[in-house]
């Protein structure tokens, strides 16, 4: 079997630009997904069941349907309804953020609820109000415990971002498919794409484990 490195070299600039897109939409997905996830997690923990219900519904929907379905709905339905035209990059970022938010909300809730009840009681018995107790006592401890599952979620998000190729986001997989279409080659484009994703996820998990270690020794 001849393996055409020359074709890969040909496509390398596209793959590199695609990598920047993958990193960009993933980082934005992580950023918005985390912010949104925190809010949704807090919403789901509200004592009032009626107020908490929409958040529960949100989490159930995004965890209970395939990402590719979600992103098609956003790309062909939601984004055109708002800005009048389709926009793959916007749909990709929105889709990744909304999807990740559902998982991050659950990570956040689990992190907070894993903190011993006595911590809240001690804080409240010292006169702190609920917000102060959360801010100074519960959240700093919960955050440390949330880092490993959050890291997993970030890696999942990075890999899921490949699906945005289907709504024409010019990221790694988009160029892989273009490569296959142009040269009728299979191994070269997809092994290259796999290698790039692998390097990205390895780098991300390395960074996360360093963060974890640093926080553990604090």
């Amino acid at each position: 079997m001849d393996f055409r490195f020359d074709l890969i070299m040909d496509y390398l600039p596209f793959f590199l630009r695609g990598t920047l897109y993958t990193i960009g939409i993933s980082l934005l997905g992580i950023l918005f997904g985390t912010i949104l996830g925190l809010l949704i997690g807090l919403g789901k923990m509200m004592k009032n069941k009626i107020l908490a219900f929409p958040f529960l519904l949100y989490i159930s929907f995004f965890r209970g349907t395939p990402f590719i379905v979600q992103i098609f709905i956003i790309h062909f339905g939601v984004v055109p309804a708002i800005i009048g035209t389709t926009n793959g990059i916007a749909a990709g970022i929105i889709g990744l953020s909304l999807n990740a938010a559902a998982y991050i909300a659950e990570i956040f809730r689990a992190g907070i609820q894993s903190i011993d009840r006595g911590q809240m009681e001690a804080a409240r018995s010292l006169g702190m109000n609920h917000v102060q107790a959360m801010r100074y006592i519960i959240l700093p401890q919960a955050f440390k415990r949330m880092i490993p599952p959050l890291g997993n979620e970030f890696i999942v998000l990075l890999k899921e971002s490949a699906i945005t190729a289907l709504v024409a986001v010019p990221e790694i997989m988009y160029w892989g498919r273009a490569f296959q279409g142009q040269y009728y080659r299979v191994w070269e484009p997809y092994l290259t794409a796999a290698l790039i994703y692998f390097i990205l996820t390895l780098t991300l998990s390395y960074l996360l484990s360093r963060l974890e270690k640093r926080l553990a020794t604090e």
């Binding site: 006595g118 911590q119 009681e121 001690a122 018995s125």
Partner: peptide, 10 residues
């Protein structure tokens, strides 16, 4: 002030 069985230090 309150002191707990399980200390509950931060």
């Amino acid at each position: 002030g309150m002191v707990f069985q399980q200390f509950n230090l931060f």
